[in-house]
Design a protein around this nucleic acid. Structure first.
Length: 376
RNA sequence: GGGGAGAUACCAGAGCGGUCAAAUGGGACAGACUGUAAAUCUGUUGGCGCAGCCUUCGGAGGUUCGAAUCCUCCUCUCCCCA
């Protein structure tokens, strides 16, 4: 994997670049739709490629390991072949599930014992095991196994957790370096900065991660409930330490505004369930602001889903019709909303990229951020 | 024409003397959602000067300290037989 930095904004730390993988090029800054179980929920590959123009999607180690399981993935010759997505894929390591499934897992030095959310069966994830699973899934970019700490988090716990994540990272790197990709194309490993909301820990972690000289670096453990200003401050701090010549991936972020603000801080890659999950729940991110399409106010509004949106669903369907679909619990409703939201997210980062290349990013960002926060 | 059952909040439907402003569903309305245990979850759904008060259970009257619950009449619905 290779990263080219093409332009940097003069008034902020925003950058435009390109990432080369064996499954194609990714133009940054980029948003990566989340496809946890190998499917971006409610969205066809055709729409993802031709309409939304996604360049890379996510999969999840924990979920894919449980179902369909490694045997099927191996027989399929990896996730790309299995789900038909021939562009880049990134897999999360299951580190987020250490956080989100806190009630059903045990954390030890060796690794984490998960109780499956599907059938309750117990499974151990060690850094080595997670590397092996991600070799079998065959994503282009794979993530180190970390502990995503919750918020709030006591300093002592955050410190110990960060140190554990660092020790796990060493084991991940060793195992990754001692194994080969299974399907003939390259994979690369991104380490993850932790340290909760403590500046000294974040500095320490960012330095540790930077020292690994990986192809790209991720920031984890943010957007887990901390105040948004705190998230920005810590992102800025960590970006100041992570190498400029490598892509920076802010995990799990966020709203359209969060993404623009963090692009300004120097982030190149984002992923978030928000456009799909919130979309399925009736929330639309549009160029004019945020819409809850289930609200009564749209009942008789026959204007386009998004007057200024460039997705085919934006002009194909009206707000009133989309609201009707949600009211009637028709599956097409969540599908349209997901396509719209993902299209909007990809348009947003694409536009940000253009503005960075043209040297107008900061001015443009300040104008659009105000519009995007409005609730219609 | 004869016999029977029933009318409860937006709808369906419990309740059958006080713990009832009234269970439970559904619908409606609103909110939440940030590396997906999520096509999920939460709240509200008579009125108000809202830790209290006022007006409600087809209508009118009655019994009782107290009625959605018991009695009388009226109105209307449904079912069965002819």
């Amino acid at each position: 994997m290779k990263f080219n930095l093409l332009a940097t904004d003069k008034k902020s730390n925003a950058r435009a670049g390109e990432i080369f993988t064996d499954h194609g090029t990714i133009q940054t800054p980029i948003f990566m739709p989340v496809g946890t179980v190998g499917s971006v929920k409610a969205v066809h590959l055709k729409e993802l490629k031709d309409d939304i123009k996604a360049q890379i999607i996510l999969g999840n180690t924990y979920h894919l390991y449980l179902r369909p399981g490694l045997e099927v993935l191996k027989q399929a010759n990896g996730l790309h072949k299995f789900n038909g997505w021939d562009k880049p894929i990134l897999t999360d390591s299951g580190g987020y599930q250490v956080y989100s499934l806190a009630g059903t897992r045990k954390l030890k030095e060796e690794g984490v014992i998960f109780q499956s959310h599907i059938d309750g069966s117990r499974h151990t994830f060690s850094p080595e095991k997670v590397m092996e699973i991600q070799r079998t899934i065959g994503a282009d970019i794979i993530m180190a196994f970390d502990e995503c700490t919750p918020y709030p988090c006591e300093y002592d716990y955050a410190k110990k957790s960060m140190e554990l994540t660092h020790r796990w990272l060493k084991r991940c790197i060793t195992h990754f370096d001692n194994t080969e990709p299974e399907y003939g194309y390259n994979q690369t490993l991104f380490p993850i900065v932790q340290g909760s909301v403590y500046r000294d820990l974040r500095i320490q972690s960012a330095e540790e991660i930077a020292s690994k000289n990986a192809d790209g670096n991720a920031i984890g453990g943010l957007s887990v409930g901390e105040p948004i200003e705190m998230m920005y401050e810590l992102t800025e701090l960590v970006c100041s330490i992570l190498p400029k010549e490598k892509p920076r991936y802010l995990m799990g972020v966020g709203t359209p505004v969060n993404i623009l603000e963090c692009i300004a801080l120097g982030i190149d890659m984002f992923d978030c369930v928000m456009p799909t999950r919130n979309g399925r729940n009736g929330m639309l991110f549009t160029s004019e602001g945020i819409i809850n399409i289930k609200n009564e106010k749209w009942k008789n509004d026959f204007s386009n889903v998004d007057e200024y949106g460039n997705s085919f669903v934006d002009s194909q369907y009206s707000k009133a019709y989309l609201r009707h679909l949600f009211q009637a619990q028709e599956i097409l409703g969540p599908m349209i909303a997901s396509i719209h939201n993902l299209n909007f997210y990809l348009w947003l980062v694409g536009e940000a990229r253009k503005q960075i290349m043209d040297g107008n990013f900061s001015e443009w960002k300040n104008v659009i951020v105000k519009k995007l926060s409005v609730r219609l």
